[in-house]
Design a binder for these strands. Structure first.
Length: 124
DNA sequence: AGTCTGACTAGTA
DNA sequence: CTACTAGCCAGAC
């Protein structure tokens, strides 16, 4: 077996799988239902790399140049904080997008995060 | 090649 | 409660 289910993959390099870690992240993020959010750690965990939550964020940073655009605004940290809002060009844009989808945001934090939370490992 | 940083998280003090 | 540390992995210097 030279193809393990999912282990440490090399995003910029190449993974043994067809999809790289980044690609898997994008795929998951794009499947987030409207009005729902998830966390970096949840995505990383769903991909089998629980400790690599940072890589998910890194993937998001890279998602700006790829197509189709990734709804990165639906990805927040595990506390529901819009930690990545400053990377959307305009700090308010992330919140605007979330509220537009029915997600209430206050003080850079998603309200009812437990309800809005969408766990890829559970839903997928 | 070594060091620091980062859109994170969990654990410990 | 806050502060710090460790783990994670890739990129910038």
């Amino acid at each position: 077996m030279k193809k393990p289910p999912l282990k440490k993959v090399t995003p910029s390099g190449r993974a043994d799988d067809d999809a790289t870690f980044f690609a898997q992240v994008y795929d998951v993020v794009r499947q987030i239902p409207k009005g729902r959010v998830t966390s970096y750690g949840a995505i990383a965990a769903a991909l089998g790399t629980r400790g690599s939550a940072r890589m998910v964020g890194w993937a998001m940073n890279n998602c700006h140049q790829l197509t189709p655009k990734v709804p990165a605004h639906r990805v927040v940290n595990r506390l529901g904080l819009l930690t990545g809002k400053m990377h959307f060009g305009d700090p308010d844009r992330m919140q605007q997008l979330l509220e537009k989808e029915g997600v209430r945001v206050a003080n850079d934090q998603v309200q009812d995060f437990a309800k809005k939370f969408w766990d890829p490992a559970q839903e997928l």
